[in-house]
Nucleic acid binder design. Structure first.
Length: 866
RNA sequence: GCCCCUGUGGCGGAAUUGGUAGACGCGCUGGAUUCAAAAUCCAGUUCUUUCGGGAGUGGGAGUUCGAUUCUCCCCGGGGGCACCA
């Protein structure tokens, strides 16, 4: 027989058109089918799709197509997260407009995604830079304002004095702006904030109600929210001459049991007490300046030495007025956390100990191991975090108590004194959403000299971003666009100015899932649609969004609920974080980083295709443009077809782990598509079994094939449902091998023909989620004139799955010695008898006495002998 | 420093509740087909062996009739958080 080749270049566009013509993937609301919303994190339109996109969307598509075949009404939309810095950077570098650049990229990437054959409902597509989208976002902002979820307040930011803009912490490198290289200043600016911290406890608690999220992500969010339970209390302060001062010093601690070990207090450089003291002391004001010059980045903080300056003030010990505790300003105390002030107990905190040793402060141990009450502390603090066998010492009325009893006692006494209370602090800060950027959603606020900050009238929304901006000067182009900026006050009508800041682009992606439910609606979100579709049943994306995007979305969904848009709190019921696509890197002394397609292997060396220069094959890391270890999906789809690319992205590696792209792997996936097609094509040449009833008799071959067929069908279904695509692919390989083998041994009987035809049909179905074009081609080749994408998932014939006999291993003292095949229903005692009669068992038991025989039906026989 | 994940052939990785370790794929070896090659098909492929076996899931101990799986200690790799009081 001739072996036919599968031509993906011809087949794929053909089936894509057939799906589109039939409207196969358009989601409907008025059905009796249960709904299923599958969503992959939408892409940023950077220019071209990359392999990470292929992997992400291939996974989502498997689920969408499978669920559709299982009878769900599926919503599987696509959009573009299209505001943000890269468009402005491109504008500056290439002298283009962000808008044009962005929409061109979207056009390119849409075409590329469509070539993947994704089962997307394209009628719902939108970009966050569409005025129809960001205008609704402005409405939501006004709603949030009405609901008290928005606040304007001053905050300290990293300011780039050359680019005239705020920088995120990540954009500050060694204290300098990442673009301008200018020394970054700390500046106080008025910014808009969303009050996410009001939801700290709720966002924390609700994590426990998200069993469909990876434990890892929940832990990361938990740490990020950072709940800590402790005591907040005030010290009385006195000057050098022991005169009581008016102000008090409020501190937060989780270790109030160590109060008698306090040997200093430390406040942040920006603390009011520190500011006041600096007015009369150059030493202190110099110290404050030094602290201010330090970046707010974590690197800067970490590398700085613990330093402080005495403020000339003492705190009175709350339980022993004779103890004076010196108050320092210190660079390691953060104004943003707790009260911006701490008491230091050097004996039981390493950082406090380092500080105390540096400034010659007292070190008094107050918690001791029960069996060594006279121990001393030199360089290492004694930290009793195990809650072990310890006891309070040197602590007046606390002596002899356990740590937890001491904490309770102190809390009680402070409450009685009325100078302290138990308190919970969170690490989570409010979300600063103002950005001094052009390419974002304008904040719908107007600054009026008389009325102050006035929200834009709803009837005047959307506040439309000007189409063009000039980037010839640093700073925000909106700020220089007078025509756009000048407006009138919605309240008094006098001339006024628009807010020229735009929203953080994380806002754009915090509600897009809800907009997909009613993408054309006049309101931002239509309640009935949102309540029908939400929460997203399966959300898929990269782990890099574990905290910010996913936490913001959880908060935003609650905000939408509060504003009355929907009745859902958690936007994503199930979350899956997929791994990255990696590739080997190549580097040449002259060529620098080299693209994989230019690296040629000869023996165990790599050389440059054009220059012949020897290349060093480097580490296998995430595909990135800078390291040039990228493979363009468009080339792969052109060469092998979308199905092959999809198949490869789903094979081998578990989807949550990284996958390495290799040329050999792509080749392998391509070979498999050809092999599968060949087998199905050959089967299609046999007498057609379409619509024929099940024959009465099957050969052993045919019976065996049918069993494997239905076992595979069942396994592939459950593997897809648990997102173990690599396993379902292994099963499909196995079954295809079996089908080919049985085809070669076909005896020409009706039974054999039927089993082969049935196998090929089911194979067409089970590959459809992964390789939809090839599936259609196979389905068509088998004489069907319907679309397999519209066909229901085949039903498993459970009677074929039940095995009558079962193979069991026979062990002697835990070592495998033999194997027996017995009827599934055989009694334990009979199995034991059969096992003991085996030659190999007898031989190995020679000279030993059987002590015990363990029989686990269907699994194992273990003979214990000595 | 704290928290989490992870470690299985040459490689990616399989292994319901503890029950035949290495499914499936890649690679490699041999064979068939071919004038030859590509493609395809078949067989083999953890290591070791005196061919009876023996060893083996990062290392060490433990629980168990039985451990890749559970417990403890140690080592390697990855990630998150971090002057958080």
């Amino acid at each position: 027989m001739t072996s036919e080749r599968y031509n993906s270049r011809q087949a794929e566009p053909k089936w894509q058109k057939a799906w589109e013509d039939a409207g196969v993937f358009i989601a409907r609301e008025n059905t009796n089918e249960p709904k299923y919303f599958v969503l992959e994190m939408f892409p940023y339109p950077s220019g071209r799709i990359h392999m990470g996109h292929v992997r992400n969307y291939a996974m989502g598509d498997v689920i969408a197509r499978y669920k559709r075949a299982k009878g769900f009404n599926v919503l599987h939309p696509m959009g573009w997260d299209s505001f943000g810095m890269p468009a402005e950077n491109a504008a500056m570098e290439n002298n283009v407009q962000p808008k044009g650049w962005t929409y061109e990229n979207i056009d390119t990437m849409r075409t590329q995604l469509k070539s993947m054959g994704l089962s997307i409902d394209w009628t719902r597509e939108f970009a966050t830079c569409d005025v129809e989208y960001y205008g609704k976002q402005q409405e939501i902002f006004l709603d949030f304002l009405d609901q008290g979820l928005v606040e304007r307040r001053k905050s300290v930011v990293n300011w780039d004095p050359v680019d005239n803009t705020v920088l995120a912490n990540e954009q500050v490198i060694d204290g300098k702006g990442w673009r301008s290289g200018a020394a970054v200043e700390k500046r106080e600016l008025s910014q808009w904030f969303l009050k996410i911290s009001d939801y700290s406890q709720e966002l924390l608690d609700a994590l426990d109600e998200l069993p469909g999220w990876p434990e890892k992500v929940r832990v990361m969010q938990k740490n990020w929210i950072g709940r800590s339970q402790g005591l907040q209390f005030s010290f009385e302060l006195e000057d050098e001459n022991a005169n009581l001062l008016d102000e008090k010093l409020t501190v937060f601690t989780t270790r109030h049991d160590t109060i008698f070990g306090a040997s200093f207090c430390a406040v942040a450089a920006d603390h009011p007490i520190s500011i006041k003291a600096s007015q009369n002391s150059t030493e202190i004001s110099d110290f404050r300046k030094e602290c201010a010059s330090l970046g707010t980045s974590e690197e800067a903080i970490e590398t700085a030495e613990k330093e402080g300056v005495f403020l000339g003030i003492y705190a009175r010990h709350p339980f022993d007025q004779s103890i004076r505790i010196p108050v320092y300003a210190a660079n390691f105390v953060l104004m943003g956390y707790g009260e911006g002030a701490v008491f230091g107990c050097p004996a039981h905190d390493q950082r406090d100990l380092d500080f105390a040793n540096k400034y010659g402060l007292k070190v008094t141990p107050v918690v001791a191991p029960s069996d060594d009450l006279n121990f001393t502390i030199t360089d290492t603090a004694f930290i009793d975090n195990a809650g072990g066998n310890t006891v309070m010492i040197n602590s007046a009325f606390l002596d002899g108590m356990s740590v937890s009893a001491a904490k309770k006692e102190i809390a009680k006494r402070f409450e009685e004194l009325g100078t302290g209370e138990q308190k919970i602090n969170y690490r989570l800060r409010d979300w600063g959403i103002s950005r001094q950027r052009y390419w974002g959603c304008p904040i719908p606020i107007i600054h009026c000299d008389d009325c102050g900050l006035v929200p834009e009238k709803r009837s005047a929304l959307p506040v439309i971003l000007p189409d063009e901006a000039s980037f010839d000067l640093p700073g925000n182009p909106l700020d220089r666009n007078d025509e756009w900026k000048q407006t009138s006050c919605p309240k008094c009508g006098k001339s006024a100015q628009r807010e020229t800041d735009t929203f953080d682009t994380f806002i754009d992606s915090s509600w897009y899932y809800a907009r997909f439910c009613s993408p054309k609606a006049d309101k931002p979100v239509e309640a009935d649609k949102a309540n029908y579709w939400l929460p997203v049943d399966q959300y898929i994306g990269g782990i890099e969004h574990a905290i910010l995007h996913l936490l913001y979305s959880r908060f935003f969904c609650r905000g939408l609920e509060k504003a009355g848009y929907l009745d859902v709190k958690e936007p994503f019921a199930n979350l899956f974080t997929q791994g990255m696509v990696t590739h080997m890197t190549f580097k040449g002394e002259n060529a620098g980083w080299v693209l994989p397609e230019l690296a040629i292997k000869s023996g165990d060396k790599w050389t440059h295709k054009d220059t012949g220069e020897e290349l060093e094959a480097g580490s296998i890391i995430k595909m990135s443009k800078s390291k040039k270890n990228v493979v363009d999906p468009e080339h792969i789809i052109e060469e092998y077809g979308a199905d092959t690319a999809r198949w490869y992205m789903l094979s081998d590696s578990p989807p949550d782990r990284d996958i390495e792209w290799t040329a050999a792997g792509a080749e392998g996936a391509w070979k498999f598509t050809q092999k599968l097609w060949r087998t199905v094509h050959l089967i299609s040449q046999l007498p057609s079994q379409k619509d024929k009833s099940v024959p009465n008799e099957f050969s052993e071959n045919a019976e065996g094939l049918r069993k494997i067929c239905h076992q595979t069908l069942k396994a592939v279904g459950s593997d897809i449902e648990s997102l173990r695509f690599n396993r379902s692919i292994a099963r499909i390989h196995e079954f295809t091998n079996e089908l080919t083998a049985k085809l070669n041994n076909c005896d020409g009987s009706d039974g054999d023909h039927f089993a082969l035809f049935e196998g090929a049909s089911i194979l067409s179905h089970i590959i459809a989620p992964m390789m939809p074009h090839l599936a259609e081609e196979c389905w068509n080749q088998l004489g069907n004139d319907t679309l397999v994408s519209l066909e229901p998932w085949p039903t498993v014939d459970e009677s074929l799955i039940v095995e009558n006999s079962v193979t069991m291993a026979v062990q002697i003292n835990g070592k495998r010695r033999a194997e027996i095949s017995v009827p599934k229903t055989m009694e334990k005692s009979d199995i034991e008898k059969v096992a003991l009669e085996l030659d190999n068992v007898k031989r190995n038991l020679a000279g030993l006495k059987v002590r015990k025989v363990i029989v686990v039906p269907g699994r194992i026989v273990n003979i214990v002998a000595n």
